[in-house]
Design a binder for these strands. Structure first.
Lengths: 356, 356
DNA sequence: ATCAAGAACTTAATCGATCAAGTAGATCGC
DNA sequence: GCGATCTACTTGATCGATTAAGTTCTTGAT
């Protein structure tokens, strides 16, 4: 049995292919009576509407955007940053009738083996990908609209959505310094593709392939400089991941080797949560014995015990804005650069250091 | 400037279109030397590889599967059931080089306005959609391979992946009854598309458009019957959602109106977490003053205070299996029916009821 | 009565790739 | 030395829809 196409329906009704096409896509181009006649015939023949592939080939429009992410799949769907971002993207694309194609690049898998290079999408949303990740080149090579979110900043070549990481970090550090803390630890998630964990230093951060890490450290140091303190005063530590477990392990080690620390600046609330657990386990009372500042302001930050002081960034909005920007770019080709607002949210995980 | 296609490259090298196509898709069909020559010419001309739309039209193969879900977008990406399932799907599809297209149908939006009816996918994964949801018909009408997960059970028309909900529920109820509980409340998520909350009854559950609700209640009642108890003995309550907040509100009301309850059977760990919070707030000590059983065994269940007794189902595996089944069905058209193993996990949220 | 404008359709070209079938020449076994 | 089999390509048909540019017919204004 031959497949039912526009032509089949057209033949049945006795009109041209174009008219049947118009019955679906431009109802104003033909009379109501004929239109209904066509739709009836279509139903009768089991025609399911214009075929997506045929349309795509002709129009060059895929009707979907791709979301590229390179984090380990065990974490992406549990990581609040990612899921909230996805939520925003999904909302926006769904309302626009655009499909959203997930393009995960699992760790250890060659990008060429994934759907990334060949998927039918009108553009790519690149979500927080280290600048040295091979998937980036694959995406860029397709020369389709690209919106980079957070990482990496590729300049005007692509659109960009992010926050002022340096300023946000500065806010967090200012808060701790203002409370009187002088022995402060900085807990990074990752500095590059590798999942290293352990102590690190300014030099290594400066060479990090993750821009956010570099910028945030600059922000922390900006605050130090305002207080005439030495940038070398921070204890820098890499967690190797962005989940509470990584945070807990790293913070435990850090506090063990540096018992003098009275406060921790964490790269995310996820890490902060782990750090808080670590603090309690090594016998610190929060916040008196250890102050902790997170980043992001995920819902859990407010309900954690103690509620976390953090730097809020609008994660869902980030997704919405990025999706809008991409769909706009698909339409008119214009790139954009959007910086979302951030805000220090002071809760109960920070306090002046206990006198000793 | 005309677009660069297979033909452009073919003309440059002086071979046929087919040979260029083979250079990409069937490297064994031509000599190495020629192949490199073609690839060089392609790079030189800025050819980005075979166009997805052209290939799709010709092969009829879209290279992507669609994931349909109809829950409110504010919840899907935070709901552990959904995200773990997605993780499994993403893993499997990514390893197979298949795209994964998210097809959310936002509440209040007409399915026809979304990407669902026209998206270029080879098949659909229908994730826990109420049997009366309009999106279902839209998907079924396309007559592509469909794998339904959990809900609804459409018989042999589609593949199906799920668990033995009735048996799982029975296990949970048996556990409570075995501990000596006789006044037990059942906390449902939803019974249908509507987000009703409040007390409900056997009759309404029996008419629920959500099969899982019906089956689980049967399972709970199976256990009751084994103890020669009356099915009417359960207090049935609808939470209206599947998040801890919904669970907390519903459980608070339920415990207020039915202070005699000594145990709660919850439809999910999310609801159980909310119920546990509610229990504490109304002054019950857990588990002595109130036993709670969840369902799913999400990671949080084990770390909650007290750790939740629950019925474990392999959520990530569900995603893996469903994706495999769908991709298999896309290839050979065969449908399947897979029931995943479940298991009662007894932790500390259940205990014999306090004597009074 | 004539012409302009609009409505309702049709014609014909086009989008880019894949595949079954075919061909020419090289290689091999016996 | 001859047919059989391989290798390395080419030919030509085909997938299903959209769209710019007609064509025909109707209607209303002058």
């Amino acid at each position: 049995m031959a497949r039912v196409t526009l032509q089949t329906v057209a033949d049945r009704v006795g009109v041209s292919r174009t008219t049947v096409s118009n019955a679906y896509n431009r109802p104003d181009q033909l009379g109501d009576e004929l239109r209904n006649q066509i739709l009836d015939a279509a139903k009768d023949l089991g025609y399911r509407g214009p075929d997506a592939a045929g349309r795509m080939l002709r129009t060059g429009h895929m009707g979907a955007i791709g979301l590229l992410f390179t984090e380990d799949l065990r974490f992406v769907f549990t990581d609040p940053d990612t899921t909230h971002f996805m939520q925003g993207v999904a909302e926006t694309s769904a309302l626009a009738g655009t499909g959203l194609t997930l393009l995960p690049v699992p760790v250890g898998v060659d990008v060429a083996e994934t759907a990334v290079p060949n998927m039918a999408v009108d553009g790519y949303l690149v979500f927080s990908v280290p600048s040295d990740h091979p998937a980036l080149e694959t995406v860029l090579r397709r020369e389709k609209p690209v919106v980079v979110v957070d990482e990496p900043d590729l300049g005007s070549r692509t659109s960009f959505v992010g926050i002022d990481d340096r300023f946000g970090a500065k806010l967090a550090a200012q808060h701790l310094l203002g409370l009187g803390h002088r022995k402060i630890g900085v807990l990074f998630g990752r500095l590059s593709l590798d999942e290293n964990s352990g102590p690190t230093d300014r030099q290594r951060v400066a060479e990090a392939s993750i821009r956010v890490a570099r910028d945030r450290l600059s922000g922390y140091e900006d605050a130090l400089l305002e207080h005439d303190l030495d940038p070398e005063d921070f204890v820098l530590w890499e967690a190797g991941g962005n989940d509470p477990d990584s945070g807990r392990h790293a913070a435990t080690d850090m506090l063990e080797q540096h018992p003098e620390l009275t406060a921790l600046l964490c790269f995310s609330d996820q890490l902060a949560i782990g750090a808080a657990q670590a603090g309690v386990r090594v016998g610190r009372e929060l916040p008196a014995g250890l102050s902790i500042v997170g980043f992001d302001d995920i819902p859990r930050a407010a309900t954690w015990d103690p509620p976390l002081t953090t730097v809020r960034q609008p994660l869902v909005d980030k997704g919405r804005v990025a999706a809008e920007l991409l769909m706009q770019q698909v339409e008119d080709g214009g790139t954009g650069r959007i910086e979302l607002p951030i805000e220090l949210v002071v809760r109960s995980s920070t306090a002046p250091p206990a006198v000793r």
